[in-house]
Write a protein that binds this DNA or RNA. Structure first.
Lengths: 226, 226
DNA sequence: GCCGACAAGATTGTTGACAATTTTGTCGGC
DNA sequence: GCCGACAAAATTGTCAACAATCTTGTCGGC
């Protein structure tokens, strides 16, 4: 069904491909924090050899996405709310500086493209699906990071996002939060179109802080006494 | 000599320990970019089994510190000047935000500690060794990142620094650059003591940009024709 | 002397089997 | 019914041997 059925004739999937597959499963919340990753199951699901599966798990452990305990194997590592706070703070710093660079350096065509995506997202608030909104949102943030050609930051942000990605689709993209995000985007876009780098940076940071605050409030609602 | 002679009785070093050892060798420039990491040599030097050595290499590959090619094994990955630029840009964003947080949130005692380290560094410019200066510099930057308890950022910055760490000791901590760094630190400290978060952040970014500029000029001098 | 083909050696990739440990299931005592 | 001890199963850790590939050295032709 959802196996990584590599149609490649002779060879099975490589360790990197297996790691990507596991990562995607985590992002899609088909693997949840705390869940143990049994090697045999992964071998069946991916078609890789045990050796490659173990290599893949080592890579994911280096990313702090899974935890490996002696004789207990790998399990999906969940981020505490404190860690989520730190993740978002780092994202605010990184994406903030990119937003400033974008305002300073982007061509008119790139700015126009950013506006187009933003407008499509606005339409999406009422009529569209959450999946569509999420995809557009990812495009929007990625475009801003790409303009200065900084793949390092892009990679870091993607990695920072992985542990909370499933939360976004489960709880994030709904109701008022969508409208709030769209409003944030408009503020950022205005600053960018005006070529005002500091304001663009501040608005981006605020946007990401808002996202974190929303997530925190949801968590507080779910664990009221704890 | 410099082997990882684990005195632990029965067990050899774990994969994480081997990875740490290799990382330290890279930081100390005993392993240089492009150099191939032969498994047998690593086994001899670390005392680990081949299996664990391979696990360690996978972890380092996940960190983008080494490159693994099919049937050619692992080799130390060197960062291009373009990548170094991106690394420093990311550092500027992350450490900048920490400097601002420090100015806002640090206790008087922590600020005092920061001043003490800065003063010791100033003494070190004339009389001290480069090693001492480097150690103090690391303490100084770490202290600023630690105050908000953001281990995520601290880990990221450390990782970003690894590929250029050896350059610092070979070329960086000498002559005018030391004086320049000390002057930068003073500007940052002044802003922090004044509780001026935006100025502290801007000064920190400038400090890191200066470091990058110096590194670039050295590189340009070494590769004049390009 | 230079160049390509070939062989020998070195190095990495893969597999399977076995050991160590944890987890699960069962049974008897209370 | 609950709890501990014990055994069986499941799972992971480790190792050694072999296969696949790359690298190096050598030889012959020109």
């Amino acid at each position: 069904m959802d196996e990584l059925a590599k149609a490649l004739p002779g060879k099975g999937p490589t360790a990197v491909e297996i790691a990507d597959w596991i990562r995607s499963q985590i992002r899609a919340a088909r693997l949840v924090p705390g869940q143990r990753l049994i090697e045999v199951d992964l071998i069946r699901q991916t078609g890789g050899s045990r050796f490659k599966v173990r290599e893949a798990l080592q890579r994911l452990a280096a990313e702090d996405l899974v935890e490996i305990e002696e004789f207990r194997g790998a399990s999906v590592r969940g981020a505490s709310m404190e860690e989520v706070r730190q993740l978002y703070r780092a994202r605010a710093a990184l994406e903030g500086i990119c937003a400033g660079d974008f305002a300073r350096l982007a061509t008119p065509e790139e700015k126009q493209r950013l506006r187009e995506i933003a407008e499509e997202m606005e339409d999406c608030v009422e009529g569209g699906t959450r999946e569509r909104f999420g995809a557009l949102n990812a495009q929007w943030h990625t475009l801003i990071m790409r303009v200065t050609g900084n793949e390092v930051i892009e990679t870091l942000v993607k990695r920072l996002n992985t542990p909370v990605h499933h939360l976004l689709f489960e709880t994030f993209y709904r109701g008022d939060r969508l409208r709030e995000a769209v409003a944030d985007h408009r503020l950022i876009l205005d600053a960018i179109l005006a070529g005002d780098a500091p304001r663009a940076e501040a608005a981006m940071r605020q946007h990401i802080e808002n996202g974190h605050r929303f997530l925190s409030s949801l968590d507080a609602a779910m664990h009221p006494a704890g």
